[in-house]
């Protein structure tokens, strides 16, 4: 329990520091004499900067040691970003305390991919679009950790079914998961990935980069299966449940795969999954959700404490 105790101390400790500073609206006449100096921040997503003659106080940062995160948009539907935003106030907490959003097409006004700790890449790469290819290469060069956010980036998902010939770019026909072009560190499968899964990975990534040794160990143990998914390849399909679980003699019929499928392609017949392959969109959620795909006793046995800690970390 030592890990979790110290995890809580760290997280609640940060919480105390931020107390009394949250939600401070800029007061037009206020004269803040001592703005807190923080690391240079290329973009600010929370406070809208407007050209103003009134001197606004600088935003105070409750935590100096944030990680830098960027959202890189390849060929995808923005559903993954929306899902991230669906953490609602949790998103603000993440941006307040743990991460600076340094690149994001829709939320941060930055043209070129800057250096960052974590790149969340959404969508697959159209290899006929040179800009996309350049961007994914630039992303790999500039990011310490590349996370494939969502099924298109991990496995191609529905973009696997593209054949080109459509307006207004008929030549755009070949879409590859990012793992076919660059090394990827972590996968977050699913279409869309769930807000809670993205949140958990964000908190764990923060601990991995900024935590103490114990926290790094916990975060490492949590992220390992998702890193292993990234190593395992760029193909996913409902068939994984057949080839990796049932054919390996591991399925005990719990029904997790059927619950995880976003398109209801899986039903349980006589205690085993029945997969409609024509409905499958190749998102990889069923296999990743299966308790017999990966299961770490070290992590899951501490579920109560980890969930409490994440809840604590998400308090504004």
């Amino acid at each position: 329990m030592g890990i979790l105790e110290s995890l809580k101390t760290l997280l609640f400790g940060k919480h105390d520091v931020s107390e009394g500073k949250k939600d401070e609206k800029p007061e037009p006449a206020a004269q803040k004499t001592e703005p807190v100096h923080v690391a240079e921040k290329p973009a600010d997503v929370i406070v809208e900067k407007k050209a103003s003659i009134i001197q606004e106080p600088k935003e105070e940062k409750p935590v100096a040691e944030k990680i830098t995160v960027g959202h890189v948009h390849m060929s995808g539907c923005t559903g993954c970003l929306v899902s991230f935003a669906d953490n609602y106030e949790g998103l603000l907490t993440i941006l307040d305390k743990y991460a600076d959003l340094v690149y994001c097409l829709t939320l941060a006004d930055v043209r070129h991919i800057p250096e960052m700790d974590v790149a969340l890449v959404e969508g697959s790469v159209c290899i006929q679009d040179h800009l996309a290819v350049e961007e994914i290469i630039e992303t790999r060069k500039n990011a310490k950790i590349v996370v494939a956010l969502g099924a298109c980036a991990c496995y191609g998902n529905i973009t696997r079914f593209c054949r080109g010939g459509q307006q207004n770019q008929p030549q755009h026909e070949s879409y590859l998961p990012i793992g076919d072009l660059i090394d990827v560190d972590v996968y977050i499968p699913g279409c869309a990935p769930t807000p809670q899964q993205i949140r958990n990975v964000c908190v764990m990534a923060y601990l991995l980069l900024k935590g103490n040794d114990e926290q790094k160990a916990l975060a490492g143990a949590y992220l390992t299966p998702l890193m292993n998914l990234a190593k395992a390849g760029t193909e996913a399909c409902g068939c994984d449940i057949m080839t990796q679980v049932i054919n390996q003699g591991l399925c005990m019929g719990c029904g997790s795969c059927a619950a995880a499928c976003p398109v209801r392609a899986i039903s349980m017949e006589y205690g085993k999954p029945q997969i409609e392959r024509d409905l499958c969109i190749k998102c990889g959620a069923c296999y990743a959700q299966c308790p017999r795909s990966f299961f770490s006793f070290d992590v899951v046995n501490q579920y109560e404490a980890i969930m409490d800690a994440i809840d604590g970390a998400m308090q504004p």
């Binding site: 769930t194 807000p195 899964q197 619950a259 959700q289």
Partner: peptide, 8 residues
């Protein structure tokens, strides 16, 4: 802990 396909 890993709600890959279990939103909310």
């Amino acid at each position: 802990l890993y709600p890959v396909g279990l939103r909310d």
